[in-house]
Design a protein around this nucleic acid. Sequence first.
DNA 1: ATAAGGTTTCCAGTTACTGGAAGGTCAAGG
DNA 2: CCTTGACCTTCCAGTAACTGGAAACCTTAT
Lengths: 133, 133
Amino acid sequence: MNISDVSRVSGLPAKTIRYYEDIGLVCPARGDNGYRDFSAQDAHKLSFLGRARSLGFSIEECRTLLSLYEDRDRASADVKAVAAEHLERIADKIEELQALKSTLETLVTRCHGDNRPDCPILEGLAGREGMPG
Amino acid sequence: MNISDVSRVSGLPAKTIRYYEDIGLVCPARGDNGYRDFSAQDAHKLSFLGRARSLGFSIEECRTLLSLYEDRDRASADVKAVAAEHLERIADKIEELQALKSTLETLVTRCHGDNRPDCPILEGLAGREGMPG
DNA sequence: ATAAGGTTTCCAGTTACTGGAAGGTCAAGG
DNA sequence: CCTTGACCTTCCAGTAACTGGAAACCTTAT
């Protein structure tokens, strides 16, 4: 498989696949012409990476998951630990964003949004008036 | 005010303040010794930036907000537009993260997390094809 | 032979900083 | 006056995870 084939199969851009090779996530074979020659396993690995990335795992987490995936003797507890920690970070991020959202909503709601120059949003940012949160 | 003073007052690291000068968000005066000399207005501006950044506005949005803040004739509607768009992005991000969270929760819950090697998390990431090798 | 399109490498840019090196400045103590 | 230590300065490099583009090579079809 050439890179465009594996790109179509895995859903990852060719650029990304080359980058993944650069950082050692995949090691496709090379043909005589220097072209990368991807096996079905390479394609599978890349699909795995694509799914893990789309779930928000970092590249380093993906590297860990991939090595766990390829280690037939690993304990599922190891995988669960990686995922659970990631889950916690997601939950934290959601909470943080919800706090931001409610602060901004308060500011936006208070702003009359017309042609007059006085604006509670800017006043809030300037720190003169009480900011919620 | 030297940079460490304005850093303390604004809550921003000195490095960040220098960076903000580099990209033209602030233009502090310079003393004969080459040291930056921040006015109270500079400090105020930096506090404004700090608050806007902590609300998740990008640097470019901060630039816009700052120019709106310093334009006494701007309409509050202009500010509201920036904030409302940002709010929408936050809401989208929250939704996306919640979807990730529930997918990941499903995977984590199904994983028994013991010493056995079979793991629903990895199987979920791998798709339907099964294990490598 | 030529044209189109796929592939290669390498370099630069993105966001918003952060760390560190090398060197100039300032105030205090001896 | 000299030293020490805390500041300050600039510049270079690196972070995460790609993305865009240039220049050149390879393949396929006409």
